[in-house]
């Protein structure tokens, strides 16, 4: 479904199965209200997240991407989030060169018990994305399709 115009932006979340997905569940069980923009993709481990998934989501039209894993040292697979931290940090800092604000992508750690922290992360990230507004979108096969619209917007 398309995003609800004027109400929502498209935010994709990649959450590890063991900590953060559970944290999001805990937030739900606690009925901690959250903005509705985020859609969560479950992965086994933050180490499974190829930073290119983040870029793929942005290029396909996401306005924001949020990654969350187990806190460092708590990884179910011992080391996954340590690798993730390095790789995601590099991608986070790389994004500006393409023309995305680095704030469109954040990564963090939320444990399965931290429902409240999850609520806070989702709320503040959604606010951050709404403050940035929609991300630049590629609107057609030719650059001109996008560029003319961008010009019009400028």
């Amino acid at each position: 479904m398309p995003v609800l115009t004027g109400k929502e932006l498209r935010i994709v979340g990649f959450l590890c199965n063991w900590c953060s997905y559970g944290g999001a569940d805990t937030a739900g069980i606690g009925r901690f209200n959250q903005p509705t923009d985020l859609r969560i993709i479950k992965v086994p481990c933050s180490g499974r997240i190829d930073p290119l998934f983040v870029v793929k989501a942005l290029m396909n039209g996401a306005d924001g991407v949020l990654v969350s894993g187990c806190h460092p040292r708590d990884c179910h697979y011992a080391e996954g989030n340590f690798y993730a931290r390095r790789r995601l940090e590099i991608m986070h800092n790389f994004l500006p060169i393409i023309g995305y604000e680095p704030e469109r992508f954040e990564y963090t750690w939320v444990s399965a018990s931290e429902g409240q922290r999850w609520q806070q992360v989702v709320t503040s990230f959604t606010e951050q994305i709404h403050k940035l507004g929609p991300a630049p979108k590629i609107l057609g096969p030719e650059a001109s399709d996008t560029l003319s619209l961008m010009q019009a917007a400028l």
Partner: peptide, 26 residues
């Protein structure tokens, strides 16, 4: 997951329904 991640965290029926469709599509 349209309970913990949708119906229990917000009351906006339109947004929740829309989000649930996305999650089912995914």
């Amino acid at each position: 997951n349209i309970r913990e991640h949708v119906s229990w965290i917000g009351k906006d029926r339109e947004a929740n329904t829309n989000k649930s469709v996305d999650l089912v599509r995914m």
